[in-house]
Nucleic acid binder design. Structure first.
Lengths: 225, 225
DNA sequence: TGGTCACCGAGTGGAATTCAATCATCCTGG
DNA sequence: CCAGGATGATTGAATTCCACTCGGTGACCA
């Protein structure tokens, strides 16, 4: 299995996110400690109410330390987001290799399962829905979705012989957006996730991506009443 | 046609949004002027970077005036959001009555068209994706989606004899979430909206909602490879 | 001419961010 | 093996920015 490709490494291409790369190893702990603290605070007050002081206090550090590693408040959120995405990808790989995949949609199911599972257990995981509606570099979430779609496309092509090409990638991009929306909706109110939306998400994905195999299905429907 | 029902009036149920109902008519202009200003600023800096001072200056008013009408910053955003939703509903009704609807999906298409059209022309329309991830009343966007789904369900049931019931409402809720995500994606980078995503959105909606008629389609797919 | 209605904008408070001083760790010559 | 400079890491008071308040002033109406 070439699933390892899912992990990828676009982090290098990302905008400088940490002010100073830690040299001494104690700072590595500080860095992840800050993110852990941020994650905890996110779960407690949401990522709007979060303040740098809260993060610092929770991490047992001082304000200045936060700013040593991150240029500003939202940079911390970006970093947390990034870490959540990385852990998500890792979890997907784990789930995929732990399961016997009878078909491509088992793989898709694994992705959904990984997402749901992290939403339930990983502190602050809701940060994955953090979208910085800001100035120029706005295309952060989109870049993530696109990157993930391409990686997943590779896997599906290699493992299940789905027809490669831009069509597949586009489909997957669309699928990612839909899944994201439905799963976010599932967790919007219910902290454990509304099963109806989760199940419907799986169903929608399967049907939508299956249409890639049999496009006549869509034509059938357009002529029905 | 009972499409007027779409317009509904949940505004009464909304939390007190305006501090003081304007008595003299010059204040009505002020009020919409403030929202116009907010809309313009939203387009310029996004609704995270927006400041009360920007709104006031753009509206040719002073800070105090903003707070005369709205209790706080996010209340302005809520009001702008609300206005966008109202205009959206109005546009949907217009589109619906201006078109000849051969089938229920023509109605759905109209909804998409209205959304896209407003996204292109209405200043600050991206506010429709504003989600107040805050304390208690969090379920604002969800409430909107749910409300709209119910209204649309009524229309579809009355005009096109779709089978009424909770299933239809749930489907429409899911459809709204998906459409929202795909259209937001279409406009995330491209100010005119990426046509691929818009077209795919229409297709996805049609196929998904059509499955409501013929649920055997989903079963067919689960047995295919 | 008094009584509201609207409006203004300096003032207050809290949160974000800076920065100069201090502490900790590493490194190197002796 | 150690002194002590060099550099990384940390601190928190000071500063800046921004949401929000409020006492004062003009505008409209009766």
């Amino acid at each position: 299995m070439s699933l390892g490709g899912l992990l990828g490494e676009q982090t290098g291409a990302a905008l400088q996110q940490v002010r100073t790369e830690p040299i001494q190893q104690r700072s590595a702990a500080r860095l992840s400690g800050l993110l852990d603290a941020a994650a905890a605070v996110v779960d407690e007050v949401g990522f709007d109410r979060i303040t740098t002081a809260m993060i610092a206090e929770r991490a047992g550090a001082s304000i200045g330390t936060v700013y040593r590693y991150y240029p500003d408040r939202v940079a911390v959120l970006h970093a947390l987001h990034e870490r959540a995405v990385v852990r998500f990808r890792q979890r997907v790989v784990d789930e995929l290799s732990a399961s016997t995949l009878a078909s491509w949609w088992d793989a898709v199911d694994c992705v959904v399962t990984a997402f749901v599972s992290l939403y339930r257990s990983e502190p602050g995981f809701r940060i994955v829905n953090f979208d910085d509606r800001d100035g120029a570099p706005a295309a952060d979430a989109v870049a993530d979705a696109d990157f993930f779609a391409r990686r997943l496309a590779d896997v599906l092509v290699n493992e299940f012989d789905l027809p490669a090409g831009d069509d597949l990638i586009f489909r997957l991009e669309v699928a990612v957006e839909m899944a994201d929306a439905l799963l976010a909706r599932a967790f919007h109110t219910d902290p454990v996730g509304d099963e109806r939306f989760i199940a419907e998400c799986r169903l929608v994905l399967r049907n939508y991506l299956d249409g890639f195999y049999s496009p006549q299905a869509t034509n059938l429907l357009t002529t029905a009443s």
